[in-house]
């Protein structure tokens, strides 16, 4: 059996297909624990996991916490209010202080791209990236790949369409890296204002029109419209965005019959996706959440225990 040699899990970009498959294989093995009456393994007893969340999160943080606890790790949550992450804050100082308390794994989320890399370089503890700015969100991509495999039995040759604010989405980037490595074709769909320069160099097809962009899709992944984002809005009104780029039944009518609908959450029903679609038969949104726990258990296990 393959050994997982990494100290950290920072991004999908530098993972190989083999490693992705190995992580997902481990996740499926651990999945069974979540279906037991007593959902606990002693594997990580005595290990300490710190959830260091500089940016707010419910789903991902809870998912990591549950994953850690199911493996019997001691899980500590540290969250920082947005206001204290300002210029002048010494990131390394924070990291060194945590290090002094001897954690085994630090799970980090930060609104600035690159922070997990800086932590990983400076800490002996393993670092898991739980989302850094608009850069990567590797555990999301892993759980998404797992969910597609569950639904389709494969990833090779599938058409994956990712729709929404690609420019500011770490989910999009990690999924682009991930699905391309897994042999799928990826189309990104957004108005020009939400499409980052040079995205085609990542190997994706670019579309600016929803129906065209999802017509051949086996999987449609809708991204959340962040209404709270700073700066000038990249569209006129939510209503117009919803009319042009929202996934509804009439768009779906012209898609493949067995198309699968995904969303990293939290869902804005009626904005990027209609309730009938989000809660309809093609939606695997809640499977994604369930798989999230398994994937995170697998990573905690591989980084701290499975050596």
């Amino acid at each position: 059996m393959m050994k997982f040699e990494r100290k950290d899990l920072l991004g999908i970009e530098d993972l190989s297909r083999k490693e992705i498959e190995f992580i997902l294989h481990t996740a499926r093995t651990l999945n069974e624990v979540s279906n037991r009456a007593v959902k606990k393994l002693p594997t990580l007893r005595g290990k300490t996991v710190i959830n260091l969340f500089f940016e707010s999160s419910t789903r991902t943080r809870t998912s990591f916490e549950i994953a850690g606890k199911r493996l019997s790790a001691d899980v500590i949550n540290i969250s920082k209010s947005g206001s204290s992450i300002e210029k002048g804050e010494n990131l390394l100082d924070t990291a060194k202080n945590l290090e002094a308390m001897g954690p085994d794994i630090i799970v980090c989320r930060h609104s600035s791209a690159g922070v997990p890399w800086v932590l990983a370089k400076n800490l002996k503890a393993s670092v898991i990236n739980a989302g850094d700015g608009a850069h990567e969100h590797p555990t999301q991509a892993l759980l998404d790949i797992m969910t597609v495999q569950d639904a389709k039995g494969k990833t090779d040759g599938l058409n994956i369409s990712i729709v929404g604010d690609i420019a500011h989405s770490r989910v999009a980037r990690s999924n682009i890296y991930g699905f391309l490595k897994m042999g799928a074709k990826v189309t990104v769909v957004a108005p020009y204002t939400m499409m980052p320069h040079g995205i085609e160099k990542m190997g994706v097809r670019v579309s600016h029109q929803l129906q065209e962009g999802v017509r051949d899709a086996d999987v449609i992944m809708m991204l959340r419209i962040q209404q709270e984002r700073l700066g000038l809005a990249p569209f006129s009104t939510l209503r117009e965005y919803s009319q042009l780029y929202g996934l509804n039944l009439s768009v779906l009518k012209n898609c493949k019959k067995d198309v699968v609908i995904m969303h990293p959450g939290p869902v804005n029903r009626g904005v990027e996706i209609d309730a009938q679609v989000a809660d309809g038969p093609y939606s695997v949104i809640l499977t994604q959440v369930t798989n999230g726990v398994s994937v995170r258990m697998a990573l905690l296990y591989l980084l701290a225990g499975g050596k």
Binding site: A113, G114, G133, A134, E136, P196, H197, I199, K201, M202
Partner: peptide, 9 residues
């Protein structure tokens, strides 16, 4: 450019 896009900066 493509580098800022890939780095998420």
């Amino acid at each position: 450019g493509s580098m800022s896009t890939s780095l998420g900066l």
